[in-house]
């Protein structure tokens, strides 16, 4: 019982800790520009005007993996000006970086990063926020994918289900495959659902491949000025039970964040 309570406390504290950090885009490679947004409310830095980032690569990985501090870090008791985070609101700070540039490591060397926020002289600091994974630059076949890999709300997007790559037995056997789509706007701090479309009939491109293509403005009604920031997709279908009856099943929900083209 004691172990259970401790586990719950640990999970809750970890969840609360991560709730203070937002990364944009949500998924990124070591060559993408990433914006960290940190809310220091409830940390020793709450109310502080000048906050500095202390960032590091490949946290908590085996010794043979090269770990580096961010080139902007400076010294613990005297952070460099380049490490100063931009204040965008009360207790809200942002920092932009590109992994390969900030750590001076190649994409192949960068697996994850972590960071903390501190005062310039290091007398106050937050806890560590880590690890945040870089997407690989090599293609990894997965049961779910989208084409193109980056798009915005005006683009044709195709979601795919490669049934031959499914690891779950229900997904391997699923038939009558459909897809659910949920679109989100840019509301802060939490994007709100703009529209949901369920049970969209997929195209069976082969015995192992299902797809569904759409342009959001053709699929849902967008009021003028609505900006979509992401969508989620979930493939659903049926399997037969022991009596031969159809039983509904659903795959996991996958999130896709729109890319702001410029």
């Amino acid at each position: 019982m004691k172990k259970l309570i401790l586990s719950i406390i640990f999970i809750l504290s970890a969840t609360l800790a991560f709730a203070q950090v937002t990364l944009s885009p949500a998924t990124f490679t070591a060559e993408d520009e990433v914006t960290i947004t940190l809310d220091v409310t409830g940390t020793p830095l709450a109310g502080t005007q000048d906050v500095y980032i202390w960032i590091f690569s490949n946290s908590d990985l085996p010794a043979e993996i090269i770990k580096k501090d961010g080139l902007t870090n400076g010294q613990w008791t005297n952070s460099a000006d380049a490490a100063k985070m931009t204040k965008t609101g009360t207790n809200i700070f942002t920092f932009k970086f590109t992994g390969t540039t900030l750590f001076g490591q190649s994409p192949a060397e960068l697996i994850n990063f972590g960071f903390l926020a501190k005062t310039k002289d290091g007398t106050k600091q937050t806890q560590d926020y880590k690890p945040y994974k870089f997407d690989p630059l090599v293609f990894v076949p997965m049961q779910f994918r989208v084409f193109p890999s980056k798009m915005d709300q005006t683009d044709m997007t195709t979601v795919y289900f490669h049934q031959d790559l499914a690891t779950d037995q229900n997904l391997q056997r699923m038939f009558d495959v459909k897809v659910n789509l949920v679109f989100y706007n840019d509301a802060t701090p939490v994007p709100a659902v703009v529209a949901t479309r369920t049970a969209l009939v997929t195209v069976k491109e082969s015995n192992i491949l299902y797809s569904y293509s759409f342009i959001p403005e053709r699929l849902i009604t967008l009021t003028a000025g609505t900006k979509l920031t992401k969508f989620t997709y979930q493939f659903t279908g049926s399997v037969k039970d022991a009596n031969g009856a159809n039983v509904p099943v659903a795959g996991p929900v996958t999130e896709v964040v729109y890319t702001p083209f410029n």
């Binding site: 090599v138 293609f139 084409f147 193109p148 890999s149 683009d155 044709m156 293509s213 342009i215």
Partner: peptide, 22 residues
């Protein structure tokens, strides 16, 4: 549609004919 990211990384799924979707 051509995914330039896939082209430059040498990944599969580089392009898609979308003529008949709309």
């Amino acid at each position: 549609q051509v995914d330039q990211n896939a082209v430059s990384n040498g990944w599969p799924y580089k392009q898609l004919d979308i003529t008949n979707i709309y």
